[in-house]
Nucleic acid binder design. Structure first.
Length: 898
RNA sequence: GGGCGCUUAGCUCAGCGGUAGAGCGCCUCGCUUACACCGAGGAUGCCGAUGGUUCGAAUCCGUCAGCGCCCACCA
């Protein structure tokens, strides 16, 4: 016997362990079944499950369980990501609390600490995924830094290098002074900063007293200025083009050049050019062959080595001692001092308040410093071309479609991808340097050494590039590296390309685009056929969740409180493609009642001896009620399938919800009660048969989204003879003979009961008052239905009987129109006749108004001529129905006229 | 500056060319032997504004407004 209350905690863990122990999650490469593959977006190995994970993994698990039940050989590939910067950061912080600096202990020791940390906390995310019910193929779990994936990384790097698609280059990078590493364009985010726009006077060489004014937001970079640019057409500066200015403080002679980059509308119209510290200036510098001295170091401190020779004494303009004293000062401290000094020299024209966007490191949160350094780059533009084409031709499709435009706009203007990071945690770049500076890229040190010896002689020694690769480099290989590539495994042959990639829009560029590029380049095919993009989880107010705002909700706490199924069902219900999901604790609490409802319905079935019956044949039943619910189940199956095919988790959830709650519980079980309480016989047997069959169908339909509850009920109610629900066949619609008639009949009963309930409630008839229903103008079929359904009508309509009206109508009646008949409820003692007249008049007016609208439409010759014939016909029918209803309501009114 | 999304019942959101919907909330009634995490009934909408296309527009197109976001932008 099922417990009176549903307590998910009592079975979730047990069920999961059972599934896992029995190997239910495993894919079967040797099976002839068609594969269905989802690659997990690997979470950070040391991370913990957050609500965003709950969203994405609920969707993935729902899809994978559904396809698995459909008989596909489902692979949901698990794994975790080493998450370079994030993990290194965490461990560095941890060590800092013990007073340890990574630079003191060195690379090797530090990496030991990271691996140790990974060992400690690495399992937590996968344990948490299990609690959510995620049916991942655990024995296949991979880690982006395990040996196989590392081999894939080396292979890809070496291959792309040989193909010229990976190269070293000295150019400006986004340098994160906090983490002391280069980062890619994507890891930079703009933040609005309130600053100042300083207008500085640079003396014009040879014209005493003449200045050219430049405007800047970054005065500290002036030490590295090597030119001033003006627009070639700007009259104000035309005579200065080709002349030189003197860089204040330093004394360097810098040319005034004409360049279209200079915008006469901005600032003073003349712009100082610091090629080593600004991306635009770098471009200008290249065009004009300017020197590019760096004046800030890796820490963002003033660095004078490259300009030492330029520092000159020029009274009133330069201050060599001041400049030398700046060495080693932080960029923002230097800014203040430089301004003060320039003011002292009267070289500041004016200062304007200025709000502008400043690039910040997305993880460090500090302003990025463009720096001229040697880094490794990947030629993304070349790799992007096939990826763009694959989406254009539909080989990979985005859901929703409009994300394709976002993908295109980025891919078509893609910049070289800086892939080297000055970190320790990650895949160390397989490149070795000889003392003469030549580079050897190879899979192993031996290979590199062999090459180097062949070229430079036997006694050459090599030093490995200390840098590691961008974390996303290994993630980009995930769809094939996890399957064993570069080895040609059976898995690779069967599960690549994957079917659908499920992820949030925030990592389309970071990850989706790069998997497309690498997949096409190395596998010759797209990594997945569909990219399903979901939104981000926000709090009830639509705010992004963050620890600092304190609005984070913990999915595991929700699982503890309401069960994993409640959380999953809530998420599915709210998951509209591409749209962000507003989720609060309350939403989950609300949806929890659905599981309870199902539990109680199952409990009711159990109490009534409704037990699984493998011999039941749905196509053979004759009882209209049985036919009706079996037919409704068919509709639910079709709706669920259509919704899942279209990645509409919300529609799938709501189709199940409506079917279970409204069709099965509210009507079917209520209608079934008289039969269930009655004598044994064919009708009772069929109703019970249909009930057990449909309940089984419900459990199957809901299993993908509510795996625990459905599996538990499956076993507890005895469906387990067919095996574990999670690998039971997905339900198929079964043709039900006479379904249309059954529908018509049940629709009538539902209509009658609803109408009677409605009028009783509106007339404030106490539930204790029961009356006969007198049918006036009822067709023979209606009277027959009334007779067949008398028990249900009595019970649900609180009626004593259903009879044709004979003779005169009683004086005090409430009346409702149901189909062609008017139903009279003799309630003289109970109701207020005036109120009933008013109610009927209102009903009549409503019907008349609706009718008038339809009539007007039909009076329009254009409508009749141009609208689809079936639409016209439908409207004619509606008009007739309204007219008939008005007539019946008129008659009802006449019957109780004063 | 370029682009995208959203604006529908008090709230959260479906619907995207032919009768305005759901869940929650609200109001009324109800312990009818599965369920008060319940049952029955009810109220509530110029479907952001404005033009247009169409026999017909919440739905398609234009314009505008508000909100949110992405990309670019350190003068």
């Amino acid at each position: 016997m099922l417990d009176k209350t549903l307590s998910p905690a009592s079975f979730e863990q047990r069920l999961y362990e059972g599934w896992e122990a029995a190997g239910r999650f495993g894919a079967h490469p040797e099976s002839p079944a068609a594969p269905f593959t989802i690659m997990i977006p690997p979470p950070n190995v040391t991370g913990s499950l957050h609500i965003g994970h709950a969203l994405t993994f609920t969707i993935q698990d729902t899809l994978i369980r559904w396809r698995r039940m459909q008989g596909r050989d489902a692979l949901w590939q698990p794994g975790t990501d080493h998450a370079g910067i994030a993990t290194q950061m965490v461990v560095e912080r941890l060590l800092a609390t013990q007073g340890v600096d990574r630079r003191e202990i060195g690379r090797e020791k530090f990496l030991e600490h990271v691996w140790e940390w990974k060992g400690q906390s690495g399992g937590s995310i996968t344990r948490q995924l299990r609690r959510l019910g995620a049916s991942l193929d655990w024995p296949r779990e991979r880690f982006t830094m395990d040996e196989g994936l590392s081999e894939a990384v080396r292979e890809v790097f070496v291959t792309l290098h040989r193909q010229g698609l990976i190269y070293r280059d000295r150019r400006l990078v986004n340098w994160d002074p906090k983490f002391q590493t280069a980062i890619s364009d994507l890891e930079v985010e703009s933040r609005e900063v309130k600053g100042s726009l300083w207008h500085l006077r640079y003396p014009v060489e040879g014209e005493a007293g003449r200045f050219i004014v430049v405007a800047t937001t970054r005065p500290e970079t002036m030490l590295g200025d090597t030119a001033i640019a003006v627009h070639p057409e700007d009259e104000r500066f035309r005579d200065l083009i080709g002349q030189f200015a003197i860089l204040p403080l330093v004394g360097r002679r810098i040319p005034i050049v004409a360049d279209e980059y200079s915008d006469p509308e901005k600032g003073s119209g003349a712009v100082k050019i610091t090629p080593a510290h600004d991306f635009n200036d770098f471009a200008v510098g290249k065009r004009h062959g300017l020197a590019m001295p760096s004046v800030l170091d890796a820490d963002g401190r003033v660095f004078l080595d490259e300009i030492a020779g330029d520092i000159a004494a020029l009274p009133g303009v330069t201050e060599p001692d001041f400049v030398r004293a700046l060495a080693g000062k932080d960029r923002f401290a230097a800014r203040k001092e430089i301004i003060a000094e320039l003011e002292r020299l009267d070289l500041v024209e004016k200062i304007e308040p200025h709000t502008h966007a400043v690039p910040h490191g997305d993880r460090s949160g500090v302003p990025i410093e463009p720096r001229l350094t040697m880094q490794w780059y990947c030629d993304a533009a070349t790799l992007a071309k096939p990826a763009i084409e694959a989406v254009e031709t539909g080989r990979t499709e985005f859901v929703p479609k409009h994300f394709e435009n976002i993908f295109f706009s980025w891919m078509r203007d893609i910049q070289p991808w800086c892939i080297s990071r000055q970190l320790w945690w990650g895949h160390q770049i397989p490149a070795w340097y000889a003392p003469d500076g030549s580079v050897f890229v190879a899979r192993t040190e031996e290979e590199a050494l062999a090459e180097a010896r062949a070229k430079l002689g036997a006694d050459v020694t090599l030093t490995r590039d200390p840098d590691v690769l961008d974390t996303w480099f290994s993630s980009a290989l995930w769809p094939f590296s996890t399957l064993g590539w570069p080895t040609k495994t059976a898995e690779l042959a069967k599960y690549y390309p994957g079917d659908v990639l499920v992820t949030g829009w925030d990592i389309i560029f970071f990850w989706v685009a790069r998997m497309m590029m690498m997949g096409l380049h190395f596998m010759g095919d797209v990594p997945f056929r569909t990219v399903y993009i979901h939104g981000l989880v926000r709090d009830e107010k639509g705010q992004k969740m963050s620890k600092s705002k304190g609005n984070v909700i913990d999915p595991l706490e929700l699982v503890d409180s309401f069960g994993a199924d409640a959380l999953r069902f809530t998420i599915a219900s709210l998951a509209t493609p591409g749209r962000d999901v507003k989720l609060g604790r309350k939403r989950v609490e609300d949806f929890r009642s659905f599981g309870t409802k199902l539990w109680n319905a199952a409990r009711f079935c159990e109490m009534n001896g409704i037990a699984p019956d493998a011999g039941f044949d749905p196509a053979a039943v004759r009882t209209p009620l049985a036919r009706w619910i079996l037919d409704a189940a068919n509709t639910a199956i079709a709706e669920a399938n259509a919704a899942l095919e279209a990645y509409r988790m919300d529609d799938y959830a709501s189709a199940c919800y409506r079917f279970v709650w409204n069709s099965f519980c509210d009507w079917f079980l209520e209608f079934a009660k008289p039969a269930l309480n009655g004598e044994d016989g064919p009708e009772k047997a069929e109703v019970k048969g249909a009930a057990q069959h449909v309940l089984g169908t419900i459990l199957k339909l809901l299993h993908p989204v509510m795996p625990y509850l459905t599996e538990e009920l499956w076993a507890r109610l005895g469906y387990g003879a067919e095996g574990t629900l999670m690998v039971t066949a997905w339900p198929q619609p079964i043709a039900i003979p006479g379904a249309a008639e059954a529908r018509a009949e049940l629709d009538w009963v539902v209509g009658l009961v609803s109408a009677v309930r409605g009028v009783r409630a509106e007339m404030n008839v106490p539930p204790s008052v029961t009356v006969p229903l007198l049918a006036q103008g009822a067709a023979a079929e209606t009277l027959a239905r009334g007779a067949r359904w008398i028990e249900a009508i009595r019970r649900l309509g609180r009626a004593t009987g259903f009879h044709p009206l004979e003779g005169e109508a009683p004086k005090g009646v409430a009346q409702v129109v149901v189909g062609e008949a008017t139903i009279l409820l003799p309630l003289a003692e109970v109701i207020d006749l005036a109120a009933e007249r008013a109610r009927l008049a209102k009903e009549r007016d409503k019907a008349a108004a609706e009718g008038a609208k339809v009539e007007q439409k039909l009076a329009n010759a254009d409508f009749v001529a141009r609208a689809k014939p079936e639409v016209v016909e439908e409207n004619r029918e509606r008009l007739a129905a309204y007219q008939a209803e008005v007539a019946r309501l008129e008659a009802a009114l006449a019957r109780i006229a004063e």
